[in-house]
Design a protein around this nucleic acid. Structure first.
Lengths: 111, 111
DNA sequence: GATACTAGTATCGCAAATGATACTGTTGGG
DNA sequence: CCCAACAGTATCATTTGCGATACTAGTATC
């Protein structure tokens, strides 16, 4: 398929919309380990990220179809997030990006 | 290596900083074909992107070390952009991302 | 009785990214 | 003579993203 297909849709431009957000890649990486609760995920994120931003990011990823949110009717509430089918298909990207990121950090250290 | 290494640097968070910008992935994709002049690259980008933004994006990618800029002292000027070593190492990410993007577009069509 | 945990939303304000427009200066073509 | 092509920069305005804070409400703990 050509980069810009008949519908004027480019896989790279489309993907990039999903990748927006300072933390989306790291969230996707963490979700690879299976379902996780909101606050548990929050604790794994860098401290500079607020729960407000995490909430927004997850809602965005959910609307894009990459993440599935499951709320249990409990008190206190329990909500779990996990990757959807198309979200799990993102794994090769994460793998490639992780490898490149490591190489890039090495490159930066040598500068 | 753990996602967050001894220096507090995470490959995913680091990568994401490089990926900022609405068009960086598509620019990287186009640069894979070899050196290209500024206006030629501009013509290949979606029309909504202005040359101002392309200029800023390229400068950013150059500063991050992914892109090399070569200016020839000519009139009218000739400037070529191409991937650096670490930029070429990004290829697996583009491949994985392109594949996923296509799958994701199919998924969106079915929704 | 006060506080923490659960999972958020609502609102505000700042910072960054982007888009729009105008301008540089030389050369070649009509 | 006028305009296009080349490769940008400078400036302004708008949009978007993000962080900080306050608030919800029911339960369990100290």
């Amino acid at each position: 398929m050509t980069p810009i297909d008949l519908y004027g849709i480019c896989p790279f431009v489309t993907s990039q919309k999903v990748l927006t957000g300072k933390w989306s890649m790291y969230i996707m990486y963490l979700l690879q380990d299976g379902p996780i609760r909101f606050n548990a995920l929050k604790r794994k994120m860098p401290e500079e990220m607020t729960h407000t931003t995490l909430s927004r990011q997850l809602k965005s990823l959910e609307q894009e179809g990459l993440v599935v949110r499951t709320a249990y009717t409990q008190v206190p509430p329990k909500v779990e997030y996990e990757l959807s089918d198309i979200g799990r298909q993102f794994e090769p990207v994460l793998k490639a990006l992780g490898n490149w990121g490591e190489a890039y950090i090495e490159y930066l250290k040598k500068q």
